[in-house]
């Protein structure tokens, strides 16, 4: 369950980051670190499989662009299908968070000895 949740979270975060503008892998990892003040980071070894999976699902598409400084980079951008998936996943995420919060609040933090 936790693993599935994590996997789903990674793709949701990637889609959300890409909603603003096309980005390349290293930039995505840095953007997430900055956005969450270093609380959430992509373990880089999992970043690329997640991006390639999104590409295989046709939620993102890629293009190569030369960089004035540094190597040629592979950018990812959202497809129309990706935007739709992002909206759906955002909604699912909020529903899930509300449900979990509701369940935790109902327990009032009591732990049986």
């Amino acid at each position: 369950m936790l693993r599935e949740l994590r996997k789903g979270t990674a793709s949701l975060l990637l889609l959300d980051l890409l909603a603003a503008r096309p980005m390349y892998g290293f930039e995505l990892a840095e953007a997430l670190r900055e956005r969450t003040n270093g609380v959430l980071t992509f373990k880089e070894g999992t970043l690329y499989p997640a991006l390639h999976r999104l590409e295989a699902e046709e939620l993102v598409e890629t293009f190569w662009q030369d960089s004035p400084r540094g190597p040629r980079r592979r950018y990812y951008r959202l497809t129309a299908r990706g935007r739709k998936a992002l909206a759906e996943r955002r909604e699912h995420w909020h529903t899930l968070v509300e449900a979990i919060n509701g369940a935790l609040d109902a327990g009032n933090g009591t732990v049986s000895p």
Partner: peptide
Amino acid sequence: DELRAHLED
């Protein structure tokens, strides 16, 4: 090439 670019960055 993508991983190489990541490493270079």
